[in-house]
């Protein structure tokens, strides 16, 4: 198992490198730069800032230079900046933010990741709890009203855009009943509405997956034998079947966790939460190259980590599975 984990960790390096490289080059293709602003900056200032942050455009070529020479000049120049950035990353330095003077990308991401982690963990727990309960009920009372109800809930949960769900929660609990804060961050109560908004579609997916997988497991011989021998439904559903039926849910949870923990821009905007999802969008819009690259790398790393955790969870839950 440890060998397998080490192997996957080793693979993570080229994967992350590829993610970083692709992102680096596409973001540099986007029109407009970080220092292009509504009030035109003095060319002197732009030049100086671009030098400071190491993103200056290629030095001009003599007018007689051919197209090929120009392209080569551009490529060489960008390649140099790419190497410098990658070199920094290898040393664990994600560089300074280009939009917020004086702030380092690593501290911006760390702060927002902390917020998003708390919110994401709460949402995942709620989703897991709801999803498993709904999925179990639906599988147990298959083809009854309960099953149809749970399935309808599950499908409804993934049939509404989450900004609509969030807005409805906000309107009802925040603004009409005034029982929960309508936004902001810093008090435990602030966690409830955004976590529910994030959790609802997730729990719907989990319920769907778990129902299908539980039905399959319940049809297997060992469960039938147990039932025939008089084992209670409760023990079967919550004891014997879980071990096998939970596996597809676990593999769904891995990537979902990585996505949720790195924040959701919709929920952050609706509820004024200082999370990480905003940086993916605003970083790209502000052409804050380093910030958005940093965010992408963190997401990629978390995704790989979560997938490794899924593998570990598999072996812990089902000893037959060898990594």
């Amino acid at each position: 198992m440890f060998r397998k984990i080490a192997h996957r960790l080793l693979w993570a390096i080229p994967t992350l490198w590829a993610i970083g490289s692709i992102s680096f080059f596409i973001i540099r293709l986007a029109p407009g730069g970080p220092f292009e602003r509504e009030r035109a900056l003095d060319p002197l200032v732009i030049a100086s800032l671009e030098r400071e942050y190491g993103i200056a455009p290629a030095p001009p070529m003599p007018p007689g230079a051919g197209l090929g020479a120009r392209a080569a000049n551009q490529t060489k120049h960008l390649a140099r900046q790419y190497l410098r950035y990658m070199g920094g990353l290898c040393r664990g330095d994600m560089g300074p933010s280009l939009y917020y003077p004086g702030l380092k990308v690593s501290e911006i991401l760390l702060n927002s990741l902390r917020t998003s982690f708390v919110l994401g963990a709460a949402a995942l727990s709620i989703a897991f709890l709801f999803g498993i309960v709904a999925g179990t009920l639906a599988a147990w009372k298959r083809d009854t009203a309960l099953d149809h109800g749970a399935r309808a809930f599950a499908v409804a949960g993934i049939s509404l855009p989450n900004f609509v769900i969030g807005e409805m929660f906000l309107l009802v609990f925040g603004l009409w009943l005034k029982v929960l804060p309508a936004g902001g961050w810093g008090r435990p109560a602030c966690l409830i509405l955004p976590a529910l908004t994030l959790a609802l579609p997730l729990s719907a997916y989990i319920a769907r997956i778990y129902r299908a997988s539980l039905i399959e497991v319940l049809g297997q011989d060992y469960i039938r034998t147990a039932r025939a021998m008089g084992t209670g439904w409760f023990r079967v559903l919550f004891g014997m079947a879980v071990r096998n039926a939970i596996l597809p849910v676990i593999s769904f949870m891995g990537p979902a966790a990585a996505a949720v923990v790195t924040g959701s821009v919709v929920v952050e905007r609706l509820f004024a939460i200082p999370g990480m999802g905003t940086h993916f969008v605003n970083g790209a819009l502000n052409r804050d190259y380093t910030l958005v690259l940093g965010a992408v790398m963190v997401y990629g790393a978390l995704l790989i980590l979560c997938n490794i955790l899924v593998d570990v969870a598999y072996t812990l839950i089902d000893p037959r599975i060898r990594l």
């Binding site: 693979w11 993610i19 992102s23 973001i27 821009v265 993916f280 992408v296 997401y299 995704l303």
Partner: peptide, 22 residues
């Protein structure tokens, strides 16, 4: 499949926004 893994690692939002801006 490694290439697919790499692309999986790119956040969807980021990719779409960049495609739209580029």
């Amino acid at each position: 499949m490694r290439i697919v893994d790499v692309l999986y690692g790119m956040p969807f939002m980021f990719v779409v926004i960049l495609l739209m801006t580029v």
